[in-house]
Simulated assay, not measured.
Amino acid sequence: MTKIKTAGLPLSETKKAAILIHGRGASAESILSLSQYLSLDDYALLAPEAEGGSWYPYSFMAPDSANQSALAKSLETIRVVWNQVIEAGISPENVVFIGFSQGACLSLEFAAQNAQKLAGVIAFTGGLIGEKILEEKYSGAFEGTPVFIGSSEKDVHVPLSRIKESETLLSRMGAKVKLSIFKDSNHTIRKEEIDWVNGNIL
């Protein structure tokens, strides 16, 4: 049973939805607290919660077999939330994905496996998932969907090389990708990232 926390407006009272995906060791509640900083007042907010606080057990760049079953289950969880939003009559181009760390990786992965015109994908420190990026996993076209990826240039969990590879593939699939890469080494969400997202996507 997928545990989904909600906040913001009810799905029945708005035309916009945000799906927020938390990082490892965090919770649906913690990612929903981001709404204090993001311009989400007219959105329905839905945040699924990972069993045991983790979407997949190993690094997002571990051998595919290591994460395979947990990742498949997690992508299915996101699909449940997505279906709930679409069945409420909200169109995909009014849906935004927002994730941090593991949640950012999962946001990018789900969006790229089901590429279409979205309101946006906001990945605070993340990249596409897999030991290598396998283009055959991804299908559809983003049709100009704005994608934001913010990170440290030397993040301990997410190498800059994978962020750049992700940017290349997402751009090829029709996304308008904005990278914000910072000199610090903090695994965090910065005010500059929040400001850019509020001004350009939300």
Score class of each variant (00 low, 15 high):
E29I: 15
Y138E: 10
P57G: 09
D42C: 09
P57Y: 09
A50W: 00
G89I: 09
A104Q: 00
G126P: 04
G174C: 10
E192Y: 08
H22E: 04
E165F: 05
F110C: 03
G126K: 03
G103Q: 00
C105F: 09
L20P: 00
L46V: 08
E29W: 13
S166H: 04
G52L: 11
Y43D: 01
Y56G: 01
V197M: 04
E192D: 15
A66H: 15
E143R: 12
G25K: 02
G8W: 03
I90M: 08
L169S: 05
I201P: 02
D41H: 11
P92S: 04
E192Q: 12
V197A: 06
A17K: 01
I149F: 06
A17V: 09
Q102T: 02
Q113E: 14
L71T: 09
S139Y: 14
K73F: 02
S54E: 15
A17Y: 05
Y58R: 12
V158M: 11
I133M: 09
N94C: 11
G130L: 07
W196Y: 13
E193S: 13
L71P: 07
R79W: 09
A112M: 03
V81F: 06
S54D: 11
A104F: 06
S107Q: 05
T125H: 08
M61E: 14
S171Q: 11
I21W: 02
L169R: 02
S180T: 07
S27Y: 01
G174K: 08
L170G: 05
G130E: 03
N200C: 07
V177H: 04
L32H: 08
E29V: 14
S27A: 07
K5R: 14
D64F: 07
D42I: 10
S171K: 12
V197C: 06
S166F: 00
L169M: 09
L118K: 00
S91N: 13
S166D: 04
